[in-house]
Structures are given as structure tokens and as C-alpha cells.
Design a protein around this nucleic acid. Structure first.
Lengths: 205, 205
DNA sequence: CCGAAATTAAACGGATCAGTTTATAAACGA
DNA sequence: TCGTTTATAAACTGATCCGTTTAATTTCGG
């Protein structure tokens, strides 16, 4: 409201701090990142950093929350719901996989999984701004498609989460556990097609 | 060979060390566990611990490797492949979900995800003794079922990983990110049935 | 029962790191 | 230009923790 920047909170170098923190946390993880490194990357003194954030945890939470929202919104706004069902589903899966398999998506997932039992709020915020948000959008699309008679789904909640999970088949674990570091478009399309084929075999008209 | 115990390596208190390490690592994670705590839990001096394992990492790797093998084997040996396809698939899914949702499965997953980019061998070993091993067993069952004309699958590899991933729908993320801590049998059966329904809609005869 | 191997407790070295403090300097509004 | 707010660098505190060392004790085979 009162601030000219994007943040409600005070500050001239506030965004610098967030940017530096994001950079370091994303490349080093939560435990691996030292506050000194964050301050250095932000080109800000440690005292300044601590004048904005009371401790390392809250700084990290803010970074994670912001990034999850940003990414989820970006993914959602670039899906065109007017295409045929198969195409819409393929698009959704493409976007989800692109995020799952991106270095950034990997990092966020890794950190949230690692820290969310020692740091429950983080897990909850990530889930709300990530999986839950996406699932809600998918379900909303299902509603329309069901109304138009293009899909037959009883348990929309389950169906949405099944679709999400199908996008993780094979490639995602291989990336998370370091078997591979990147995949060809062919591999990705194969999984996307497989997911949509399976989904439509079950819920198509 | 030469040793009376179960271990190839030397030692009288070797197993004590592993047991204590498993207990502490599973309850505190890798970073959260201190070697002193491990030694205490193992009722062993730290010097003894270090006489068996050169450092904390290798100790953890050995614990993780052993536990993954143990759990995977246990799950595999209790599946009866002679039942009708639908029942076998339900059984498989039940077993997988039981593991995914167990406190132990959660712990291992969490730690392996967290540590596997700073500690690549761990991720690889976990993947090999977990997902890959399970997928191989599932594919081997597919081969038989296909021969008997009970399933129609072109890409067996993809199908196996799709089945695995369908078992994680909804409940698994909710547990990983701390939304819920346990689930009713009804919820679990719902996901299992949903997974098998979907799988058979796609690959059933 | 002896002597080698294993085990122990306890302290220590060296390193990292979160968060505070202090004294100084820059930025900026009035 | 003055005074307040904001930022800075650097040293410091207090704590944790890995891994080593030492000197004493226990275990156990032969």
C-alpha cells in the first residue's frame, strides 16, 4: 500500500536480499546455505539482512513461498482451455513436466521434502501454492469438460491427482535420485502421451 | 566367509553400530543426526564407531542401502502372482502404498531426496534397490500376463512406472508435505482401486 | 593365564555457522 | 545544511559438530 516497491514490508534493499537468498538457497539447499553467502550474493551486509528478516528460516520461507506462487501462476496462465480435451490434457502435462524436470522445480521439491518435517509450515505452504493449487485448476477444467460431455469422472479429486502423478512416471524419480540429469523431448513426449492415453482410456467418453 | 556374524567385515559390535545409526538417522535425518548421538544409541564409543566406518557419510550409506534392500525384498516376497490380474495388481499397489506411507518409507524417501545431490551415490543406490528393483519385478509379471493374453502392453517400462506413480496419487504428497500424518484404510483402498481401474482401462484385454 | 586385539571415556583441535554488536559511513528528507 | 534513518564492515559470542588422540580397561583366543 504505502510502499513504492513490490513488498509490503519496508526497505530499499529488501528485494536484493530476497534475490540473493533465492540464488543461494536454490544452489545450496537450506542447510548448505550460509547466511554470509546469502549476504554476499545479495551484495548486502549481514546486519542489513537481519534487519529485514528475524532469522534464516523465515527468510527461506519467504523465498520458497514467493517462488512457488510465481511458478504456479506462470504455468497456469499459459494453458488454453478452449482446445480439444486431448490437447488441453497434453498441454497441462507438458507444463507440469517442464516444471517438475526444471532445475528450479527440482531444487524446490528437494528442499521442501527435506525440510518439511523439521519445518512444517514450509511443507504446508508449498503444498498449498503448488500441488493443491494445480489440482484445483485441473478440477475446475474437469467440471467444464464433464458438463460438455467430454469426460466422465466421478471422483474429480482423485482424477486430478492421478493426472499429476502420471506426469512423474519414470523420468521424475530418475532425476530426483540423480540417475540422469536431463531428458530428450522424445522421452518427455513419450511420458506425456502415455499419461494422456491412460487418462482418456479411463475417463474419456 | 571367515566371520561368524552376518557381516563380511570385521567386528563384534558392528551390528550394534548399524542398528544405532539406523535408529538415529531415521528419526533425525542425515544432517540432524550427530555422530555422538549415534554412538550413544548404539551403546558404543565413538572411537569404535569410527573404527568400523571411516566417516558419517559412509555409515549412512550403509544404513540406507541395507534398509532399502530389506524393505524391497520383504515387499516382493509377499506377492502371490497366481491370482487373477486385477487381484495381483491390487496386491502390488497395496504393498507399494503401505511402504510409501509408512513412517520408515517416508524417512528414507525424505533423506534420499534431500541428500542425493550432495551425495550422488546414495541416490543411485536407493534408486537401484528401490524403484528400479520394484519396476523390474512388475515388468517381469507383465511379461507373464501378456503371454497369457491378460494384458496388452507395448511399453512395459512406462507401464510399470505409471503403476508405481499412480500409487502415490493424492495421499503421498499430503504425507510428504505434512498436510496429514495418517490415512484410513478406506482412503488407501480408494487410491488402490482407482489406480488399478485406470491401469486396466488402459492395458486390460 | 597371558598377550594381542578390541573397546572405552574423555578431552581436544579445528572448523563452521547463526546471530549480535559496535563504530563508521552513506543516503536522504526537510 | 542538518539530523535521522539506513547501510556497512568486521570482530565477536556461543554453540555445534566431525573426527582424532590418549591412556586405561576389557575381551578372548590359544
Amino acid at each position: 500500500m504505502a510502499d513504492g516497491g513490490t513488498q509490503i514490508k519496508r526497505g530499499r534493499k529488501f528485494d536484493q536480499v530476497l534475490d540473493g537468498a533465492r540464488k543461494i538457497f536454490m544452489s545450496d539447499g537450506y542447510e548448505g546455505a550460509s547466511v554470509d553467502d546469502v549476504a554476499k550474493a545479495a551484495e548486502v551486509s549481514k546486519a542489513t539482512l537481519y534487519s529485514y528478516f528475524p532469522d534464516k528460516r523465515l527468510l527461506f520461507m519467504e523465498v520458497a513461498r514467493l517462488e512457488c506462487c510465481r511458478q504456479t501462476e506462470h504455468a497456469l496462465e499459459s494453458i488454453d482451455m478452449t482446445q480439444p480435451v486431448r490437447d488441453v490434457l497434453c498441454n497441462m502435462c507438458q507444463h507440469m513436466m517442464k516444471f517438475f524436470l526444471s532445475p528450479f522445480g527440482q531444487r524446490v521439491f528437494r528442499i521442501c521434502v527435506a525440510e518439511s518435517d523439521r519445518f512444517p509450515e514450509l511443507g504446508r505452504e508449498f503444498y498449498a501454492s503448488g500441488p493443491e493449487h494445480v489440482a484445483a485448476s485441473i478440477m475446475s477444467y474437469f467440471d467444464d469438460a464433464i458438463d460438455r460431455g467430454e469426460l466422465q469422472i466421478k471422483d474429480r479429486h482423485l482424477a486430478a491427482h492421478q493426472l499429476i502423478e502420471l506426469c512423474k512416471a519414470d523420468l521424475f524419480p530418475r532425476l530426483v535420485f540423480g540417475i540422469d540429469t536431463e531428458f530428450s523431448d522424445e522421452e518427455i513426449n513419450n511420458v506425456v502421451t502415455g499419461a494422456v492415453d491412460m487418462f482418456l482410456a479411463r475417463y474419456g467418453v
